[in-house]
């Protein structure tokens, strides 16, 4: 190959570079695709978690509303010995 034409040597290099670029691009594309899929799964998991937490929050809010319903508060107040003030029974504390 010592006597190979310099022009043909450049031509060979070009082939190699093109091949590397092509293979590199293929790898890069598949890597990007792979990452996108993995991120998609992660995103989905996080969304599911967010949804679950929001559902939990809804449940807790409903439970809070049940606990704070006027009848329940009145029952607890009676249990603690409190009485509802009648009209005019209000005394302004100093």
């Amino acid at each position: 190959m010592a006597g190979t034409n310099p022009q043909s040597r450049d031509w060979n290099w070009l082939h190699v570079v093109l091949l590397v670029v092509m293979v590199g691009t293929l790898f890069y594309c598949s890597w990007i695709n792979n990452r996108t899929v993995i991120r998609g799964y992660e995103l989905n998991d996080l969304r599911a978690e967010e949804k679950r937490l929001l559902e939990e929050q809804d449940k807790l809010q409903a439970e809070l509303a049940t606990l704070l319903r006027p009848q329940n508060l009145a029952r607890l107040a009676r249990k603690l010995g409190l009485r509802e003030p009648q009209a005019g029974h209000k005394v302004v504390l100093p």
């Binding site: 509802e84 003030p85 009648q86 009209a87």
Partner: peptide, 23 residues
Amino acid sequence: NQRLAGYYNYPTTTGAASLAALL
């Protein structure tokens, strides 16, 4: 109505002076 008066803070017609008497 007693509760309503307390809730909306209706003042008594006879004024505060006779509050004790009313109670």
